[in-house]
Nucleic acid binder design. Structure first.
Length: 850
RNA sequence: GCCGAAAUGGUGAAAUUGGUAGACACAAGGGACUUAAAAUCCCUUGACCGUAAGGUCGUGCGGGUUCAAGUCCCGCUUUCGGCACCA
């Protein structure tokens, strides 16, 4: 074995004809519409299930192995539910607006629609080749005008509600993608998509008031069965904080400076103020003497990118404005500084600085030699470091002697009494920058009229179609390619009929995915985005499975839209996705040099078992786990796997690798093991005699235990352990030449959701004429699963010293007596005093000796 | 720095409520079949000591609770994911 990974892998050698079987049954399901679902009113509410996968962006690269992981999990679950009498909605579609197709269009001139639809066709074919039980009649694509008509319609509802507004404040701009970005799309100061450093740019933007829903988005998280990590991420993103708004007067000026602080208790320690460079009062606060210094500073900070301003190497910078504020609690005059460590976008864009008890203020005070006054008794010297823990207040007049919590309350009361401050709540969440200066997205259905202002495109004129353009190239000046099409831009005002111009920005890719789960319910409705009846029949989504990368972006945006629709009475649930499961990433093995750099897989040789060597240098490498990437040449292509091992092997292997939620490395040898298992199953039914006899007592027990475990594990999505239990049973069946039909049938039924093609085939070969998809899940009886004999463990001081097989239900005294008569135990007891005896019935006896 | 998740054999991993650690699978070794190989079937396989019986150690590290800890508590280390001057 010289190839460490899967290239040139040993193709399975056997008779199991997966290719014919899989083609045959996929055709059967399609021709028989096996998975088409309707809103059958006779099915009670609790037997209706909506199981949803996050729909894919149809990229040119096609499906990767991560997609089938979640899809297989939901497919198994859906097939299991159907066999248990549930009416299951399980749809699939495509998130088909987006930049890659547009960038390809710029390069090649091919219309994004052409590329996208070709990719969708490929994706659909690939997804179908895995035998998933989707109701394909409900497929939606976000780029089709039938679909985005309603995306535009929902936007108009938001607009009407005052939740969409135009903003001129600086936004995140990616100069490579030539478009504005939402805060959520900026990671480490860089564009999430392409890694370009984001700059601030002043362009007109459409913004959605997601902050209006901050409170609901936060509090309703409690009602969701979601991973705690995702809830935590959303909580952090929303970033609610409680504090106070305090008003400072400015000495000698008719101006007030309002600040937000979470620590009003430290007001006596405020030794200076800071306003952000963009603060509206900056000009007024700046005195003649300071003017040139301030202007220079404003210039410099305006030139900085967000990354430079917020980067970890946060060397504090700032400039004195020349003005002073009056601290309302003690009338002290404190200097007002301008510094870019204060952000204009949070709170009021101005702070009171308490260097003794805030690390950032402390750093700034040290750098500019500003006074540091201790107001909480600190365990360290506040001249040397900031003390940010709790303490007893000092130097604080009426707060002296109080701890942090009590002092905050006391100060809030004082501020409100004196009318110089109030309790205030702030959120880190910003409004959602919703317009993109690109072509391949939903046109925003608004018209700018010089007389009437911004007006809606009337609903009956939707969809507002995306016009054809000659060039897809964004202007880069902050206008989309649509701005260049005069005959499209120039229109008449729907209100006054006068000359007007269309909005030329388009919506971000997230728009379409904000509501696709609703369109699946009623995909062909031309009267409404979804009918009330169908919405009430299915919603909310009972199980939503997808990648953790959408923890804040898609899942926050979709919740926001859903809540707006809920408030408008258009949907009946406050939350769209009741239960969420993130599937883990499928990683791959990679090889690492001593300097931690990675070596592409094809440059590595396995010279002996588990010894990996770089071909070029002979350096011994460590095998590590890494993301699949083209450059490491460790990407697994699902098409190849399916053609060499079959869809059933692919499905079952991905479920057998480990728990659904954790990330795990792909190993083709492991896939081969699953293939072998399926081949063994095939041969079991081909070669062994299936009898009409009743199963033996032992076999019957194993059967019922297996059904119990597989049932329990399948319903709780623990597919890996369900599979291993089926393996145990198959291994057992292999020990005999024949086995009973009852066992044969139950096993095929359990295999059904996991390896549906193979199971259907075996089911048919056993003489059944009805598809396995219509058959009920096997049941077990608890009484057949209990062991009559148990192994009793005898321990001395908690260590196992002997074991004995006994009849179940032996009473404590008898068990203890038995232990004491055990030869080995006698030996261990010799010369010792028994201190304590513990008996756990049917489990163990533990004798404590001294 | 803050928040979250995790750490178990050579590898992927099991272990309902604290009660036999390592199910199932991969890899490895041995055997059967074969002219041979592949495929298949059977056996062994946590480490160490021992001819064996058996013993000692063992779930990232250090403590603790308990008759008994992978599981509970305290303190740390490392890895992964997220956030990061949010006052």
């Amino acid at each position: 074995m010289t190839e460490p990974l899967c290239k040139g892998m040993i193709a399975p050698m056997s008779k199991y004809p997966f290719h014919e079987i899989e083609t045959k049954w996929q055709r059967y399901w399609e021709e028989n519409q096996s998975f088409a679902v309707t809103e059958d009113e006779s099915v009670p509410q609790e037997k209706r299930m909506y199981v949803l996968d996050m729909f894919p962006y149809p990229s040119g690269a096609g499906l990767h192995v991560g997609h089938p992981e979640g899809y297989t999990a939901t497919d198994i679950y859906c097939r299991y539910l159907r066999m248990n009498g549930y009416n299951v909605l399980h749809p699939m579609g495509f998130d088909s607006f987006g930049l890659p197709a547009e960038n390809y269009a710029i390069k090649t001139g091919t219309h994004p629609k052409v590329t996208t639809e070709k990719n969708i066709e490929n994706f659909r074919k690939q997804i179908k080749s895995l035998g998933f039980s989707y109701d394909w009649n409900r497929e939606v694509s976000t780029h089709s005008s039938d679909y985005y008509r309603w995306t535009q319609w929902i936007f108009l509802q938001l607009f009407r509600k005052g939740l969409a507004y135009e903003s001129h404040t600086p936004i995140n701009w990616c100069d490579n993608c030539k478009t504005g970005l939402a805060n959520e799309e900026v990671k480490d100061g860089k564009c999430e998509r392409c890694g370009t450093v984001v700059v601030r740019k002043n362009i007109r933007q459409w913004v959605l008031k997601i902050t209006e829903y901050a409170d609901k988005l936060l509090s309703d998280l409690d009602t969701l069965e979601w991973p705690e990590s995702v809830k935590a991420m959303q909580q952090n993103w929303i970033g609610r904080s409680e504090g106070a708004s305090v008003v400072f007067t400015v000495d000698g000026l008719d101006a007030e400076l309002e600040v937000y602080t979470t620590r009003p208790d430290t007001l006596f320690g405020a030794t200076y103020m800071v306003v952000a460079p963009e603060h509206p009062l900056v000009a007024q606060l700046t005195t003649k003497e300071q003017e040139s210094a301030v202007n220079a500073y404003l210039d410099a900070s305006a030139r900085k990118s967000d990354l430079e301003r917020t980067d970890l190497a946060k060397d504090k910078t700032g400039v004195f404005s020349g003005s002073y504020a009056i601290n309302p609690v003690n009338q002290k005059k404190i200097p007002i500084w301008i510094a870019d460590y204060v952000l204009i976008s949070y709170g009021t864009g101005a702070i009171m600085a308490v260097p003794a008890h805030d690390t950032r203020d402390w750093e700034f005070a040290k750098k500019f030699d500003l006074p540091i006054i201790e107001v909480l008794k600190s365990e360290i010297n506040v001249q040397e470091a900031a003390w940010t823990e709790d303490g007893i207040h000092v130097n604080s007049s009426f707060l002296d002697g109080l701890n942090k919590e009590d002092a905050i309350k006391a100060m809030l009361a004082w501020l409100e009494d004196k009318k110089v401050g109030t309790k205030a709540i702030n959120y880190k969440l910003r409004d959602w920058i919703f317009s993109r200066q690109r072509y391949w997205g939903e046109p925003i259905p608004l018209v700018h009229c010089p007389k009437c202002g911004t007006v809606e495109v009337p609903e009956d004129q939707l969809p507002l179609l995306l016009p054809e353009v000659t060039s897809y190239e964004p202007s880069g000046t902050g206008e989309s390619p649509l701005a260049k099409i005069d005959e499209w831009v120039n229109t008449t005002c729907p209100v006054c009929g006068g000359k007007a111009k269309r909005e030329t920005n388009t919506m971000p890719q997230w728009a379409g995915s904000c509501w696709y789960y609703l369109r699946y319910l009623d995909p062909k409705n031309s009267e409404a985005f979804v009918s009330k009846e169908k919405e009430q029949y299915w919603m909310p989504v009972d199980l939503y499975v997808g990648g953790a990368e959408h923890a804040v972006l898609h899942l926050l945006y979709a919740r926001f839209w859903h809540k707006v629709l809920f408030d408008l009475g258009l949907v009946s649930t406050a939350e769209p996705f009741k239960r969420l499961v993130n599937q883990g990433m499928i990683t791959s093995f990679a090889f690492q040099r001593k300097d931690k750099s990675l070596v592409p897989t094809d440059m590595v040789e396995e010279t002996e078992p588990d010894v990996f060597v770089e071909k070029a240098t002979g350096e011994v490498l460590e095998r590590v786990v890494a993301k699949m990437s083209k450059s490491l040449k460790n990407v697994i292509n699902p098409d190849e796997i399916i053609s060499e091992y079959g869809a059933d092997s692919m499905r079952m292997y991905e479920m057998f690798m480990g728990p659904l939620e954790v990330s795990k490395p792909w190993a083709t040898t492991g896939l081969n093991g699953i293939y072998r298992f399926l081949d063994r199953v095939w041969r079991l039914y081909e070669e062994r005699v299936i009898t009409d006899e009743a199963p033996s007592k032992e076999l019957n027990k194993l059967l019922h235990k297996t059904i119990k475990k597989v049932t329990y594990d399948t319903s709780s999505l623990n597919f890996n352990t369900a599979i291993s239990q089926m393996m145990v049973m198959v291994n057992e069946l292999y020990k005999t030449e024949e086995f009973p039909k009852a066992v044969a049938e139950a096993l095929v039924k359990m295999l059904g959701p996991y390896v549906p093609h193979l199971a259907e085939e075996l089911w048919q070969q056993m003489g059944n004429t009805e598809s396995l998809t219509k058959i009920s899940w096997p049941t077990y009886e608890e009484k057949f699963t209990v062991d009559e004999e148990v192994e009793l463990v005898f321990q001395i001081n908690g260590k196992v010293r002997a074991k004995e097989t006994v009849a179940k239900g032996m009473d404590k005294a008898a068990a203890l007596e038995m232990a004491k008569q055990n030869e080995k135990i006698i030996g261990w007891l010799e010369g010792k005093t028994i201190v304590k005896e513990i008996v756990v019935p049917d489990k163990l006896v533990n004798i404590v000796v001294r």
